[in-house]
Amino acid sequence: MSASTAPVETAARQHWMAVLARADSAQLDTRWQALNLQPEYQFIRQPEIGLTMLRGRVGGSGSPFNMGEMTLTRCALRLTCGTLGVAYIAGRNKQHALTAALVDALLQDGSYHDRLQSELIEPLAAIYKKNCAARDAKTRATQVQFFTMVRGED
């Protein structure tokens, strides 16, 4: 939405936060464990489950209205170097939110950025893309190819 207008740094952060939020909790955990990083941190906000009210638009594009709520889990923490990591993740998985907040903080740190980007964010983004493409391929096969039957002489 505003990703295109935001400064590059914010856009990059928005991208990895989206990848982390969309990742399957178990896959994120496995890949995070495999990195074997144990950064020290302090909680600013312990992983906490809550609700957000989803807003839609009347007619899909008109004025906003409140559609109903969804569950989400948030977490905020600070690395000992002072970098802030934040995560807001759909659903109720506290470990997912904690890992995502840690990764968000470490990605802002030059010494971890490239490794996390190539070993965590890029593979998870590829999985998400692959899942979307697989879903699209099944959907596409149900697309109607209309043809018109000509009836009568004229």
Binding site: M1, T52, M53, L54, R55, G56, R57, M70
Partner: peptide, 17 residues
């Protein structure tokens, strides 16, 4: 549960159909 605010209005035009 506590309420963590409101979402941005959903953009259903870009829905993955």
């Amino acid at each position: 549960l506590p309420r963590f605010g409101y979402s941005e209005p959903l953009n259903t035009e870009t829905m993955q159909i």
